[in-house]
Each structure stands twice: as C-alpha cells, then as structure tokens.
Design a protein around this nucleic acid. Sequence first.
DNA 1: CATTACGTACAGAAAAAACTGTACGTACAA
DNA 2: TTGTACGTACAGTTTTTTCTGTACGTAATG
Lengths: 180, 180
Amino acid sequence: MDAYEKLEKSRKRITESIAQNIHLYGLPPSAGRQFGMMFFEDHPLTLDDMSAELGMSKTSMSTSIRSLSEAKLVDRVWERGVRKDLYEVKDDWYQIFVDMFTVKWRRAVSLHTAAIRKSMAELKELKKADDITDELLAIIESDIEKLLYIREYYDWLDRLIDAFEDHKIFDLVPRLEEDA
Amino acid sequence: MDAYEKLEKSRKRITESIAQNIHLYGLPPSAGRQFGMMFFEDHPLTLDDMSAELGMSKTSMSTSIRSLSEAKLVDRVWERGVRKDLYEVKDDWYQIFVDMFTVKWRRAVSLHTAAIRKSMAELKELKKADDITDELLAIIESDIEKLLYIREYYDWLDRLIDAFEDHKIFDLVPRLEEDA
DNA sequence: CATTACGTACAGAAAAAACTGTACGTACAA
DNA sequence: TTGTACGTACAGTTTTTTCTGTACGTAATG
C-alpha cells in the first residue's frame, strides 16, 4: 500500500464514521459519505464532481445535496465564470450542530403545539356537552391535564432551542477548553 | 359523532403527531403510536393489550417495545400476581429527552472519537515515511489539522452531553416558567 | 412430572426508502 | 433565434426496513 492509499484509508475511516452517524441528522448514510468527502476537499464541488468521486448518479447527488443543504450542512457558493452549481461544507461544526438541532426540533415543536392546541380546544368544548357522564368527564379532565403537561414540556423545548439558536448554550458549555 | 368518538379523535391527533416526530428518537412511526397510546392509558400494559389496541402482531409489539425501552421512553414494571411483562411510559418527558439525547449522542461521539484516534495515528506515522513528496506531506498536515478540529468539536459535544446528563442544562433553561 | 402461558428468534411478505435513467424546463451562449 | 449545458421531476428498480406467522426455549403452575 503506497502513501496515497494510506491517506485514502485514513480519510475513508472518518467518512464512514460520519456516514454511520448522519442518521442523527435525519439523513441517509450516502449523504454522510458525500459530506465526508466534501470535508476533505478544500474547494467547492459541482454535482458532476461529486458524482464522479462517489460513483453515484447525478440525480442522487442532486437530491442528497438538497437534504444536506436543508439541514444546513453545506452551502451553495458562487464563483465567477462557473456555470455549474458549487457546494462546499460549512466549516463551523458547532454551528452545524446548532443549525441541525434548531431546524429539526423547531419543526417538531411547531407541529406538536398545533396538535395540542386543536385537541385542547376540542376537549374543552366536549366538557360543556350535556350528554357527558361523570365517568367520561373524569377522562376528559385527565386528558386535559396530560395536554397541559406536554404543552409545558414543549414550551421548555422551545426555550431550549432558543438557547442553542442564540448561542447561550456556549455560556454553559464553552467551545474552547482553554488549558493552562 | 358521540362524545367517546370525539375523545378518541382528540387523542388520535396527539398520538399521530408523536408518531410523525418519533423519528427524532430514531424510532419508526408505529413505535410512536405505541408510545402515544400508552401515554393515554393510566395503567401498565401487556404486549397482548398493545397488540389488541393497535391491531398489530404481538411480535411487532415485542420488538418495538424493546426499541422504546432502549431509548428509555418506557419502563418495564412488575405487578404482584401478573405473569405477563408490563410496560408503562415514563412520565417525565424532560428526562425522556435528556436520556434520548444522551444515549444517541454518546454513542456517536464514542464511535467518531475512536475513528479519529486511529486515523490520526496513521497520519502521524505516514508523515515519517521517507517516500513522501512535499505535496503529499502538505495534504497530510492538512488532514491532521482537520482531525484536530473535529476532535475538539467532539470534545465539546461530550461536554454538552454531560451538561444534559447531570441536568446543568436546567440551570440554563429552567423547567418551570414561574410567572408572577 | 406434564402442561400451559409467555416472549422472542427467525424466515418470509409487505411497505418504505434510496437510487437510477430518462425526459423536460430553464437559462446562458452563440 | 437556435443550440447547449445544467439541475431536477418523475417513473421504475433495487435495497432496506418494518411487519407478520410459525416455531421454539423458558419459566411458572398444577
């Protein structure tokens, strides 16, 4: 094995490690491979570059780069005189984490909150109905209690997301461990 | 639609909302449905109960309850005189979030860190070889820089996980919003 | 001891997700 | 205007995941 192959092997291990864990970002392994490969390239790549490098179809590159882009792991960049779309990985992994966390959980909180609001309204309406037995009323009250609890939880989650988004999290857990 | 159906509809909305978002916990929608259903039941359930309630096979219940258990969303409980396994959802959603976060990311950090250590050692070894061109050496140095960066990032992530695990996160983002 | 109830391993079926090639719309170039 | 290069929508295929039914090991019961 020559030096170049050894280098490739070293890179491949890291890339595969990323590929195996990218599901934490809601992305398939191939997107992780794409990200890893781009991470070791020091310049923006076109879809054709990626296609050639990974031996996958351009269509796949197109769809997965969109996923990577929506999860904010890559940026589209412009270069004078280049007609093709160019992409590069973001270089701030802390910010990548924050963005992923924010995007993914904000959406979840939003969907859940909407569902809770609707169901809560229905239950309160139902409570007023006059054909309600005491037994059923107790269940309704119990469900309302549960919804109040999870609404409170989602409020906490929302504030947690804020703490990431506005970087307050770095006050609690500093980026750099300054050694003496 | 009678009152009971209305109640079911209200519950179903919440349960479906959970099912659609449980992928954030690395679980399939059906596990979310299972969790949601159990959330509204006020007593522990057997696999047969779940099977009947969700209209799915007992085998499926068994496998998905294991996933829910590993992700620490449910607990197995014991009841005198009951031979069947009983499960109930954890009632502390804040702790559920913390556990999921901890379990999922700790594993990722561990795997990544191991990969980085290996590749780093290889690269340092490779640097010493005498058949290395200046060009290749520059690439190796560059890769080492990159690995140093992500190692630092994973160290931060590890400390972030600590902050969740030991509940310091609740100092930054308090559980209860105490209003005046 | 035999019997019964229970959970799950395993293999196959069904469903979902990822990937590919073709075809088309758009935009720049000549 | 015509031609060319590009990205992606879409339909079909492959791969992966999820779900089911059968069969078996284990433990409690009589």
